[in-house]
Amino acid sequence: MSMQTQVEPNVVEGTKKDKSRFLKIIQSLLKSKTGFIGFFIVLTVVFVGVFANYLAPHDYAQTNVDNRLMPPFWMEGGSPEHILGTDNLGRDVLSRIIIGSRVSLLVGVSSVIVAGFIGLVLGLISGYYGKWIDQVIMRLVDSFLAIPNILFMLIFLAVIGPSLASIIIVLGFTTWVVYARMVRSETLSVKERDYVKSARAVGASDFIIIRRYILPNIISSFIVIATLNVATTIILESSLSFLGLGIQPPEVSWGLMLSDGRDYLATSWWVATFPGLAITITVLGIIFLGDWLRDVLDPKIK
């Protein structure tokens, strides 16, 4: 897939090293075809998301029933006014995709932060302190693993009602398990290393040990998993929209557009196809980027 670059697993301080490390990363990015593509796609999407308000040619919510279901400009009946056509209420598809990128990214990134935080804390506690608390947390992990993500979210959202905030929280609450398991197992192995043992022997506090020795060892795997999970949550969000429990209008996300457009697939394909493409390309980019990051940062895991 991409070049495997050996990087020292332990972070070493010193600006010189940092610089060469940074250069190495850039070098490997340029060498890895997929990594570069992924990086480029993600950069573009983030750019679009951040500057969505300036980039969107039309008001994404402006309905115009006289212009509904207008095809993209290169087709008969299309107009350069609406490059990617209009949807069932006459809204500009391109503008909606641009604005929608904001919500999709927001949901993807924030829920990963929520999940990562929960997973990190519980994983550290579980791995570092062990004993009964480890047992409790691991049983909790097992319980979450036994319930399919989508089912858990479905029940949760049906109960508390779907909104941007609740979707982010629910996505976070269902996907933390991956991080917790990873963090726990890494913590377990680092904990037994000699330098940690000696640190403890000289009386370093738990907090110091975790901060100085354990976290730096976890961080690269953590970033890789988090990156890949942004892709997963974007897909999950669109599945939620299909089940009617995703982002609710007037807010717009790619998942919502795709799901709303599915009834027009046979008659006005552009309504669903473009947001679908946006999802696919973005997810593709994230996975490529994540895979490359994994090769660079963390050659241990495959």
């Binding site: 919510a61 402006q62 069932n88 009617g244």
Partner: peptide
């Protein structure tokens, strides 16, 4: 409501505008 009646979502959005 959304998804309960035929075109409910679209109707409400049009009414809003």
């Amino acid at each position: 409501p959304s998804g309960r009646y035929l075109k409910d979502k679209e109707t409400a959005e049009l009414i809003q505008s």
